[in-house]
Every structure is written in structure tokens, then in C-alpha cells.
Design a binder for these strands. Structure first.
Lengths: 240, 240
DNA sequence: ACAACCAACTTGTTATAACAAGTGAGCTTA
DNA sequence: TAAGCTCACTTGTTATAACAAGTTGGTTGT
């Protein structure tokens, strides 16, 4: 009838977080404190905390403690007219910064090649960016299918917004195909994205086409599922 | 340098799943077998399995064992022209069934009321459906903002697809606002959806408008994040 | 004053142990 | 034959214990 102890403790802490006893960034009681407060073993206290961490409500740092994760989500609007992540955040007035990690000619990854309809390992440009906004971090992987990109405006793409730069250079993005899915952080991502292993991630994968229906780039925006959500609208004058 | 034992074991099992040693529905080695195979304690073996379960790669049943979750995801296309879940699955040739749980007049829930722009607790119709497709289950909560729904075609909505029934009765759905986010199963949902506590869920929330821009209904489609994904396209003749 | 060290805290990993509880096969009994 | 029981196996929960490893602040020594 009664739930396991670790669930009860989790729920108690969750309610305290939701009711404001602990707010964004606060330190939760240490495992030792939970042991004494609830008269349980460390395993049980640990499992209670693990429940919160696995759901993204808190994050643990070895040597420091367990801290409440900000609960507010950043909404990325996918509605027409198409805007890239940077633009949409600017429109919403959310502080946004990104850091270029990689920008170089490379052989097309197999998934991007398939999406772009080109042979695997075709020559493309690959860009990797980290972005930060409102305390949350994410990653963007881009695969550009533009032959002479390097000579023309590659340097611009390293430091400026992708879509406007493309448009200014005669390649306006007209439409795209996209998939939104949820995956989990694996060992490849930990550190790179500061996401605990096993944490849920939102992945937004898209293929962008120019106005003549030719594929231009393939992208993946990877973000923490507890900090990001996506919105779309088919209404005429919508701007939510 | 070397990762913790339980991570190594998780990875080994994950690779075995991905390489086909264990496929959809197969039983993984029991905790006792893992203890002997890898010469570790039960805690470590358990933690290795817990990693897989928390990522949705496997699901554990007490008394039976741990079984591989189907990895294939069902894609729900949100592209224009608007189609409801049932229709899109039928179009893709995926076996689909739903079960009506609740259909009754009720006071509008606060979130639906806010989305529909009506006072809280206004009279509405509330419907709850469970659906099954391709081995996955999900739930649909609908809040209808139609005053004389009961007298006209309410019974039809219990057993047939929502959008066509609305259209046939003079209420064609023209456009919608939607948000896609990822949450986690809490105690309310376990059992109801056969989702383990803490499991990631995809939530698709939308407000549907008729052709005269009046809100008609508010809905939420809740599904397992490891079994569902959403796609959209702004291309003209797209049908992916 | 400053650097180095250390002690006390934190979470992370792992072992051993026991009991609870759900499942299923096989045996026993009516 | 059929119902019911038992036993072996499964995962779930919890306790105690020890060490590893990262952080922080205070103390000590130069």
C-alpha cells in the first residue's frame, strides 16, 4: 500500500521544490542530512536523490552537493516564417551566446548524407556550435552542402547567425523537413554538454531547402529535455 | 581513466542490443547471471541494468526479468494539412486502436481553460482516450469547447476519429498552436500508461481552431519518449 | 602576505547481507 | 482431471560498511 521509502522522500523533496522551499540553484540536503532526517540508510537517501536527478529536477556535483535545476523551459518556436535558433531567442529577448567549436571541410556523416540525398562521405562543411541561453546549454551540429562555401563566406558562419548569412549570400532557406525526438545522453556527450549520463535530451533534426527545393544543410540541435521545448503554430498571424 | 564498472557493463549490454545479440522483447541476463559473468556484486549488476532501464532500452518486470524494449520509433507527422493521430497512423499503415476511457461534461481544467481563452471551470466536454500502436501505448486528453456537443454528435466522438467527426458536423479544424515537450512519468501516470516511474514522456499539447479562428478544443497527447517522435515539414508536397 | 597542506565535507563506487514480493513450473492432493 | 500448494527464480527494497575522489575552508609554515 505505502510506497517505498525512497519514493516517499523523493516526493517530499519534489513538493518542497515545487512549493518554493528550495528554488532554482538552491542546495538540497546532503545524503547524510537525509539519512538523519528520515532515519534511513545512505542507499535509500541516495536513491531518493537519484530519482530527482534522473528526472532533471536536480543535478549533483561530487564534492559540492545536489542543486535544484531551473524549471523554466526555453521555448523554441518552429512556426513559419522560418527562423533559426539564434533569431528566435533574440526575438523573445532571451540572452543568447554561442561558441564555434568546429568549422571545416569534411566527409559527410552518414545520417546527414542520407538526409541531404548525397553519397556517403561526400565533401561538405561541418560545423559544431555550443550555445548558452538563460542558464541552459545545448549543441548544434550542421552539415553544409555548399561546394564553394570556404572561399565565399565560410568565415562569416563561424561568428554570425547561419540563416541570415546564407540569405545574404544568395541562398535563402525556404522550407525544411524536421523530426523532434527524445534521446538520452550517452558517454559521447557527457562533458561536452555538461549533461549527466542518462539524462533526457531533446533532439531537433532538420534538413533545410533553398527556394528551388535543393537541400542546403542538415542540422541537429541537441538540448536538455528539462530546459527546452518546441512550439509550432499554423495560425496566420501567430507569434507565440 | 577507466569508467565505473556499472557503466562498462551497461555499455556492453547496450552494444549487444544494438548489434542484435538481444533483440526486441528478448530477455536480458538476470542480475545473478551478470554478477557471475562480470564478477561483480549485485549492486553493480543492478546499477548496470538500471542505466538501460532509465534510458528506455529495457524494461524490468519483478519476478520475470528484464526485457529489451522495441527501439523503432513511431513518427507522428504534424505537417499540413492537419491530421489527427489516428489518421496519420492509418496513412502510414500502422495498426492503431484506441479505447475511450472518459467522455463527459465537466468543468474546464485550468490549463485547458487558459489555452482556450475561457474562464476557469467553464462547462466543457472532457475526453480521455488510451491508444495502442505498434506495441506502444499513449494517452490523449481532450477538452472540447463546444456548447451543444452532447446533443449533436457526442456519441460519435467516443468511437470514431475526432477531426473527421468535427468536420462532418460543420466544425472543420483549420489550424492550431502546439508545444512539444519532454516530461517524466510521475506517480499519477504509472499503471495508467504502463510507464515506469521516472520514464521520459513526450507531451504534445495543442489548441485547435476552426476556420473562423475560434478555439475548438485543447488536447494533450502523452506518449513514451523512447517510442514516439514527431516530424514536421514546411515543404509543399511533403509526405514523409 | 602567500603558498602549501590538511581536515572535513561532499557525492561516486562497490561489496555483503537479508528480506519482500511477483512469476511460473511442477508436484501434490482431492 | 483439476485445483491448490510449494519451491525456485526473478526483481525490488533496505541496511551496514568501506574506500575513492572532488571541493572548500582553515591552518600551518615560509
Amino acid at each position: 500500500m505505502s510506497p517505498p521509502l525512497h519514493i516517499s522522500i523523493s516526493e517530499k523533496l519534489r513538493h518542497q521544490i515545487e512549493s518554493g522551499v528550495y528554488t532554482s540553484g538552491d542546495r538540497l540536503p546532503s545524503e547524510h542530512q537525509l539519512m538523519e532526517t528520515f532515519s534511513v540508510s545512505r542507499i535509500t537517501a541516495r536513491q531518493a536523490v537519484a530519482n530527482l536527478v534522473s528526472q532533471g529536477l536536480a543535478i549533483a556535483y561530487r564534492g559540492k552537493g545536489v542543486f535544484v535545476t531551473p524549471q523554466k523551459k526555453v521555448t523554441y518556436s518552429l512556426s513559419s516564417p522560418l527562423v533559426f535558433l539564434e533569431q528566435d531567442m533574440a526575438r523573445q529577448g532571451i540572452a543568447f551566446s554561442f561558441e564555434n567549436l568546429v568549422f571545416e571541410p569534411a566527409a559527410a556523416p552518414s545520417d546527414a548524407a542520407a538526409a541531404l540525398g548525397i553519397p556517403k562521405a561526400s565533401p561538405v562543411y561541418v560545423q559544431k556550435k555550443l550555445f548558452r541561453m538563460d542558464g541552459a546549454a545545448g549543441a548544434v551540429d550542421l552539415t553544409y552542402l555548399i561546394a564553394d562555401l570556404g572561399d565565399r563566406f565560410a568565415p562569416l558562419l563561424e561568428h554570425q547567425m547561419t540563416f541570415p548569412i546564407l540569405a545574404q549570400n544568395g541562398i535563402p532557406i525556404d522550407c525544411l523537413d524536421a523530426v523532434i525526438e527524445c534521446t538520452h545522453a550517452d558517454y559521447d556527450l557527457s562533458g561536452y554538454l555538461e549533461v549527466p549520463l542518462g539524462h533526457a535530451l531533446m533532439v531537433y533534426r532538420y534538413t533545410a531547402y533553398s527556394s528551388d527545393q535543393q537541400p542546403v544543410l542538415h542540422g541537429a540541435t541537441i538540448s536538455r529535455a528539462d530546459r527546452f521545448c518546441y512550439s509550432l503554430s499554423t495560425r496566420a498571424g501567430a507569434s507565440a
